[in-house]
């Protein structure tokens, strides 16, 4: 009785025999001319497979992390009402973050596999652990108002604001890796901008929030300018096409726009509100823009193949 393996081995033999019939190895032709396009201009790299949940998560997780930092700092100075709201914002954000990330998994039921191992060389692994620790401490802080948990949530929250920049920066996608130094700072600043804005929109009128939001908008302006100043072909998707439009509009809304509104309309509540809204939308649009730019970058073989037009 032939086993299943035997049968499959026979299949392979017949594939080989059939191929043998086809031809003998070709005689060698003339030298192969150089290529300007690579292989028919087909992409070398694969596009990120992430759905909209992932850029949304970058936004929510970042804002939640920054809220935890604000909450701990507010508590240290006795701003208890603000600390309370910030804590709940952090805890709620952590919950939404976990849901968004799980939703994007190809196998959501296996989300716990994220915690099977800890791998410092994988930003996805570090991020999963950071999100877990952040979720636990932020939720605990919200429920108990414990000072230690506030500090823990702020510390893990700081990772939440920045690691997503590491996550996409340290990849094979040229538009992202070219901006690897910038991304964590850019995402961190825009997280701070949206967290402060959200708390302001909840009715908190602390001067500290306004000052932090101003600093965030200034940092975002610098980040946007430094993207614009990059000249390499790798960053083209950050400036051109639909992804470039998103990155630029997002950058404008999270940087120069709120900065101007806050500096000029310092004393006016409407201006602060408008600045806040702008920063939130900008931060959201920015994340979508960067992810989309990753797809555009993967589609262009010129950069990784170092083709003449790159």
């Amino acid at each position: 009785m032939p086993t299943d393996t035997d049968r499959r081995e026979i299949t392979l033999t017949s594939i080989r025999d059939e191929a043998r019939e086809l031809a003998a190895p070709p005689a060698q032709g003339p030298p192969v001319p150089p290529s300007e396009t690579g292989y028919y201009g087909l992409p070398l790299l694969k596009r990120p497979v992430w759905s909209a949940s992932v850029p949304l998560y970058f936004f929510v997780g970042g804002a939640a992390g920054a809220a935890a930092i604000i909450g701990a700092a507010a508590r240290a100075r006795g701003r208890n009402r603000l600390a309370h709201d910030a804590r709940w914002m952090a805890a709620g954000g952590a919950l939404i973050s976990a849901a968004l990330l799980t939703e994007d998994l190809g196998r959501p039921s296996r989300f716990l596999n994220m915690l099977r191992v800890f791998k410092p060389q994988s930003a996805m692994s570090v991020g999963s652990w950071a999100l877990s620790a952040f979720g636990a401490s932020a939720t605990g802080a919200a429920l108990t108002s414990s000072a230690a948990l506030d500090v823990a949530a702020a510390a893990t929250g700081a990772v939440m604001t920045t690691y997503t920049g590491v996550l996409i920066g340290a990849t094979a996608i040229p538009a992202w890796s070219e901006a690897v130094d910038l991304l964590p700072a850019h995402f961190g600043a825009s997280a701070l901008g949206s967290a402060t804005a959200l708390l302001e929109l909840l009715g908190h009128r602390d001067a500290a929030l306004h000052h932090l939001a101003t600093v965030a908008a200034a940092a975002e302006t610098v980040a946007g300018a430094s993207v614009e100043m990059k000249r390499s072909a790798a960053v083209r998707p950050l400036k051109e096409g639909p992804s470039g439009l998103l990155v630029r509009v997002g950058g404008l809304l999270s940087g120069p726009m709120p900065l101007a509104l806050r500096l000029l309309g310092r004393r006016r509540r409407m201006a602060r509100r408008a600045a806040g809204l702008s920063a939130i939308i900008g931060s959201l649009v920015t994340r979508f823009g960067w992810v989309r730019a990753g797809s555009a970058s993967a589609d262009d073989p010129a950069v990784p193949l170092k083709l003449p037009r790159a």
Partner: peptide, 25 residues
């Protein structure tokens, strides 16, 4: 390079928050 940038940014965020609330009080 990525983690260096993340670390500097995280520290700056915490520092900025502490300073902002200290200044306010």
């Amino acid at each position: 390079r990525a983690w260096r940038s993340a670390f500097v940014t995280a520290a700056s965020l915490i520092g900025a928050a502490l300073i902002a609330f200290a200044a306010q009080s």
